[in-house]
Simulated scan of single mutants.
Amino acid sequence: MSDGVHEHQHELARRIDRYSNKDGVHSTAIPSLFLIRESVVTEPIFRVNEPSFCIVVQGQKEVLLGQDRFRYGPGSYIVATVDLPVSGQVIQASSQTPYLALKLEFTSREILEVLNHSDFPARPHKTTRRAMFVSQAEPSLLDAVVRLARLLEDHSEDIPLLAPLFKKEILYKVLKGPHGIALEQATMEGSHTYRIRDVIKYIMNHADQNFRIEELAVLANMSAASLHRHFKEVTAMSPIQFQKQLRLQEARRLLLSQSTDAAEVAFQVGYESPSQFSREYSRMFGLPPREDIKRLRGMDQ
C-alpha cells in the first residue's frame, strides 16, 4: 500500500470514527451518504441492498448474494447496481479497531448523467454481468471519497455545490474501473441487465403475489428461458428464489415489529401453507419463526 493510499485510509477512518460515535448506520448532512461503524463481529443481517457504493477503511465484512460470497476489507469497495436481497456480516471488528465504512447511494439517473458527459469507449453489452462486485480502490478514487468526507467538517455551506460534483467523480472512477461495465449495463436501456431491473422492480412491488415466469418474460421482452438465465446471471438467484428472500425478510420484520403469530404473517407475505413458510424460514434464518424472534428480542434486551 502506497503512502498516499495509507494516508487516505487513515483520514477516512478518523473522520468516520468522529461522526459515528456509536455502532450502526449513520446518516450525514450529505444526502445519500452514510457512515457505518461496528465494534463487534455481527451475526448476518438480512436486507435489500439498494444501488450503492460502499468502501471499507477498517475491519472486514462478508456479503452473501444467493450462493455468491463477497468479502471485502480496507481499501476495497463493493457496488450493487440494482436492488438485491442479501445478508451481510461484519467478520472483523473490535472495540479498539471497529469496522468502519462509508456508503454512498446513487440512482440510475445519476449514472446516466455521468455516462452522457463522458467519452467512454464503446463496450460490448452482450455478456450479462452480476449486479454486485468487489474491487480495490485506486488512489484517485480514494482521493475523491476523502474530499467528499471532508465536507462534513464545518463545510455545510459547500455541500449543495460540491457534494454532487464529488459524487459524480466517484461514480466516474467506478465506471472507469475493471467492473464498471456492470454498472453501465444497469442503466443502458435495452441491455439485458436493464430489462432484468424492470422485472426486479415488479417482483419487489408484488412480492406477496404469485406469478408465472411467462408473465415476467413478457415484461422483460424475453423468452421464459432467456429471462430465467439472465435473471440468475444478474442476481445469482432465480425469480422464485428472489421473491422467496423478499417474502422471508418481510416476514421476519413483521414478526419483530408486531404481536402476530407466524401463520398470520405467512399469509400476509404470500404463503398459502404455514408449514411451508416455517420450513423455508428455518432454512434461511436457522431457526423456526417463534424461536428465531424470541432469540432476536432477547439480544435487544
Rank of each mutant, 00 (worst) to 15 (best):
V146M: 03
L171Q: 03
S275Y: 11
R212D: 13
E184L: 12
A182K: 08
I213D: 08
A236R: 02
S223T: 01
H192L: 10
V265Q: 02
D198V: 09
A182V: 07
Y271L: 07
L248W: 00
R252L: 12
P239V: 04
R253T: 10
A263D: 13
L148D: 03
Q241H: 08
L142F: 06
V199D: 00
E138M: 10
T187A: 15
I181P: 06
E189V: 13
T193M: 05
S259C: 13
S238I: 05
L248K: 02
A266Y: 08
R229D: 07
Q268T: 12
F211T: 05
E169Y: 02
L246K: 09
M222H: 02
Q258C: 06
R147N: 15
N205T: 13
L246H: 09
S140Y: 10
Y194L: 01
L248C: 04
S223I: 00
G177M: 03
S191M: 03
Q185M: 01
P274F: 03
R253G: 07
D154H: 14
T235M: 04
M222K: 01
T193H: 01
L216K: 01
F267Y: 12
Q276I: 15
K176W: 09
N205H: 14
R150N: 12
V269G: 04
D154E: 15
E184C: 09
L161K: 11
A224D: 06
Y172H: 13
E138R: 11
L254C: 04
H228Y: 12
V146W: 00
L216V: 02
D154T: 13
H155W: 05
P139E: 06
L165G: 01
K201S: 13
K201E: 13
D143F: 07
M204T: 15
E138V: 09
S156M: 12
H179R: 14
E250L: 15
L227F: 06
I159C: 06
K201R: 15
S259H: 14
Y202W: 13
L152K: 00
Q268A: 12
G180K: 03
F277W: 01
R247Y: 06
A220M: 05
E264M: 14
D198R: 13
A262R: 05
I213Q: 08
S238D: 07
N205P: 04
M188R: 08
F242L: 10
S226V: 10
